[in-house]
């Protein structure tokens, strides 16, 4: 878990931690991130320093696009697309 307690605002590493319940949760592999509702998916990915080209976002099993507005209580699963070795 990457929650950083109840400090409002933006962390130096790009993650958002806010007090209160007005959050959107994004999950990438085993890491959780939180952002404010009302921003687009693209903005959220930029906030948490995830390269948009490297993931596909799903909400309730359906793929969503960069311009999707994230709503309070959303849980967004980020699926990493890069594989290989």
């Amino acid at each position: 878990m990457l929650r950083d307690g109840n400090i409002d605002g933006f962390n130096p590493d790009g993650r958002i931690s806010l007090s209160g319940d007005n959050l959107v949760k994004l999950v990438l592999r085993n890491k959780d991130y939180e952002v404010k509702p009302g921003m687009t998916l693209l903005s959220a990915l930029q906030k948490i320093n995830v390269v948009p080209e490297s993931v596909i976002a799903t909400r309730e099993g359906e793929m969503i696009l960069d311009d999707e507005i994230l709503k309070d209580g959303d849980e967004i699963k980020l699926i990493a697309v890069i594989s290989g070795g």
Partner: peptide, 10 residues
């Protein structure tokens, strides 16, 4: 690669 991931999911 992103498109193939999308295809597999869809």
């Amino acid at each position: 690669e992103r498109e193939m991931t999308a295809y597999s999911l869809a």
